[in-house]
Amino acid sequence: MKGSYLGELEELVLLHVGILYPNAYGVAVMDEIEKQARRSLNISAVHSVLTRLEEKGLLKSKMSDPTEERGGRRKRIFLLTAAGKRSLEEANELRNQLFSQIPKVALQFRLA
């Protein structure tokens, strides 16, 4: 089903929107990703992902008050929707579940 699949970058952005609650907007998300995941993204790429997630119904948005630092323009503040939260949980669960299934030996071998 289209829209149910969550891409890697999408998941990353979705997580950061959650982290930044209630101040997640384009530049903030970009900065946070750079700080936490050490990935430098272009602002336009962040915008595309945010828009896509909103279209999928995982995010919702509202306009903030005007701010001086943006030349008197408003920000679009993104918030997680219930569906967004659920898909994050699902992704997390799936990952943990899969991780736990890895045989110890393989991990030890890898760590050694």
């Binding site: 602002i43 943006r70 030349g71 408003r74």
Partner: peptide, 14 residues
């Protein structure tokens, strides 16, 4: 326009 221009301006001023 508003959000895009806003983000671009913010990054510029910074």
């Amino acid at each position: 326009l508003e959000e895009i221009q806003g983000d671009a301006y913010e990054l510029f001023y910074r």
